[in-house]
């Protein structure tokens, strides 16, 4: 630990705060409020999902057979594990373990990338079979309303995928700042905030997976 201390960058409390404690608790409150708006953002989509599930239950059952639950399950494992490595990353930052912070953040990033790779193969299969949003749909199915399911599928998993991408960018930014020795037990706000964001992204997937893949 003493070896790492050499290159620590001292954090300065921003001019409009009185104490570091006030600064940290303000950032945390802001982040939670931001996540509430994220919840509402996805919430409307979930409402749409349930409205059409209620209207066309048989179509949903047919549609979910076109999705691979194994790939979905694999991705679920990736994301849950990444939530764990993220927590450990935050913990390491709080306890001045710079190297461990780096490793955990890197593992989180790797898992996030694996998620996107699996998603790529899933999307490719859908493109191949024409199971696409209505304007591009050329797949085969019993129900006429099938394109609605895939419209929702691509919008919801696509938006979630964009959130994963943003998460990867944020983790890369954390790793850069960590390499400069900016985080320690006195100051780890960005790690904690990105951590909160990352858990939210995971949580969205925890709902998307059973809803889309395990309808029956």
């Amino acid at each position: 630990m003493s070896k790492q201390k050499e290159s620590l960058v001292q954090h300065h409390v921003a001019h409009h705060f009185d104490t570091a404690e006030q600064e940290f608790s303000t950032a945390k409150l802001g982040m939670w409020v931001f996540l509430v708006q994220e919840l509402l953002f996805f919430g409307a989509l979930f409402v749409a999902f349930f409205v059409f599930k209620y209207l066309y239950p048989e179509m949903y059952v047919e549609a979910h057979h076109h999705l691979s639950w194994k790939m979905g399950a694999l991705n679920t494992i990736f994301l849950i594990t990444s939530s764990f490595t993220m927590v450990m990353g935050v913990r390491s930052a709080q306890t001045n373990q710079r190297r461990a912070t780096k490793n955990y953040l890197f593992a989180t990033m790797l898992l996030a990338c694996s998620f996107l790779v699996v998603k790529y193969f899933e999307y490719a299969a859908k493109f191949h079979h024409g199971l696409l949003p209505p304007h591009f749909f050329f797949g085969e199915g019993v129900h006429q309303t099938l394109p609605i399911f895939f419209g929702l599928y691509f919008v919801m998993t696509g938006l979630h995928g964009i959130h994963v991408l943003i998460g990867i960018g944020l983790i890369a930014w954390l790793m850069y700042r960590n390499s400069r020795g900016e985080f320690n037990s006195e100051f780890y706000t960005p790690v904690e905030m990105v951590g909160l964001y990352w858990h939210f992204v995971d949580l969205v997937w925890i709902f998307l997976f059973p809803l889309f893949y395990l309808v029956g």
Binding site: V51, G151, V155
Partner: peptide, 16 residues
């Protein structure tokens, strides 16, 4: 998205 790729949920012609 409805105007570009189509989502279908607002489109009565396919059950939206």
């Amino acid at each position: 998205l409805e105007r570009t790729i189509g989502v279908g949920i607002f489109d009565p012609t396919i059950g939206g």
